[in-house]
């Protein structure tokens, strides 16, 4: 079972605030899921040399003359200042 500290670490990585009650629920849920997921550790009869990639080579596609939408970009912005997007002050730059 994940320790409370581990769950808190994951919650911080995911930037999801959780309270004490949720913390215990996640400890339980994650345990159930990981008992299942950990089964992958027993799998060893497979070919290790290649990771799956949905398509063969990025070179097959050429993006020249691609047009990507750029209208109304700031329409959904929660907080704006002029043309800038505003957030609480950033530290740790």
């Amino acid at each position: 079972m994940l320790s409370k500290e581990e769950v808190m670490h994951v919650a911080h990585l995911a930037r999801i605030e959780i309270d004490e009650e949720e913390l215990e629920k996640y400890q339980r849920d994650l345990k159930i899921l990981f008992d299942e997921i950990d089964k992958i550790k027993d799998l060893d009869d497979f070919d290790e040399d290649r990771m799956f990639s949905p398509c063969e080579n990025a070179f097959d596609l050429d993006r020249r003359n691609v047009e990507v939408d750029k209208d109304n970009l700031l329409l959904n912005v929660p907080k704006k200042k002029g043309n800038f997007i505003e957030v609480p002050v950033m530290i740790n730059e």
Partner: peptide
Amino acid sequence: PTSLDDLYSKTRKFGF
């Protein structure tokens, strides 16, 4: 929010 991290973690707590 009280900070950038507070914005993130509360937005995601209540949004999802």
